[in-house]
Simulated scan of single mutants.
Amino acid sequence: MFVLAWLLAAWQDVGVNAVRPVFGYNGAFFNMGTWAEFIPGWVEKGPENPQPIIYFLASYIVLTPLAIMGIDKLIETLRRRFPRLNRAGVIAFMIALFTFLCLALEQVFIRFGAWHYLRVNETWSIFPGTMYQFPLYEGVVFGGIVTVISIGIYCFRDKDGLMITDKGIERLKPTKWLPVIRILSLTAVFNLVMMVFMLGFNFVNMHAGTQPPADEIPSYVHHDMCGLADNPPCPPLP
């Protein structure tokens, strides 16, 4: 259920480049282009960042459930070890943990060349002006807060095993469609969380102008996206 809900919200992953290109996957990943241009309201600005299909699916089908199960067990262990640890303490711990993991893992993948942040806000980034630059606001907000919200929905189930997105489902008549309703309810929440993140991320990106040197950005990363490397500048925003 959790995996399906995230898959139905993951279409927003392309939204990091909604207003202007700031991120690029390595073109060596298997891909079939991107669906970005077909999203209503998408800003037309030429070539876009292709989505790595196999990695994309693996992230949500394999890594997501493993992370959820691992954190669920970790929370149980922490509460047994520290009985006075309340929900606020658990949330604070998870935000700190996932922020750190995001920062660390992003640097690993960036240095392996899997992807790069090609335009960042220098004030709130590490290694600005290099191919290793990384926006800390992405690590804190997405890696920490967004991840913890989504995992917390699952981990903080009630005594009947229901999530907060299942509230009121007991008022529905028993039907074979109840699992579908639960998935769609969870999907709606995940889509809302992702949408809020993307709106904020793109607002910051409108003021993000720090790039690596043009001659250091390989073509298989910038994908001819506007305003990057030696590519033509992006058209004015409508």
Rank of each mutant, 00 (worst) to 15 (best):
M131P: 01
V19Q: 02
Y60D: 04
N121M: 12
I153Y: 04
F29N: 07
R182L: 08
V43Q: 03
H207R: 14
E170Q: 15
N86A: 12
N49H: 03
L4R: 05
E170P: 15
P135K: 04
V120Y: 01
A36I: 05
E138A: 05
W35A: 10
A96I: 14
F98E: 06
E76Q: 11
F38D: 12
S150G: 14
P174C: 11
K167H: 15
W124H: 11
E37F: 06
L105G: 13
L162S: 12
L228P: 04
S59R: 05
I110N: 05
I145D: 05
M195C: 15
I183K: 00
C234P: 01
L8R: 02
V22M: 02
G139C: 02
T77E: 09
P52T: 02
P174G: 10
H207V: 05
N202T: 10
A67D: 11
E170H: 15
F156L: 06
L237W: 06
L186H: 04
L105C: 14
T175L: 11
I181A: 15
F127G: 02
A28L: 12
A214N: 08
I169G: 07
T165D: 03
V3P: 07
P21H: 01
I39Y: 03
E44N: 10
G113P: 09
V196R: 03
F203Q: 12
T175E: 13
V3R: 02
L57C: 04
L136P: 00
M206W: 14
L97P: 00
G70K: 07
S150R: 03
L78F: 13
R84I: 13
L57G: 05
F203R: 10
Y60T: 03
P83Q: 03
V146E: 03
Y25P: 11
A36S: 08
A58E: 11
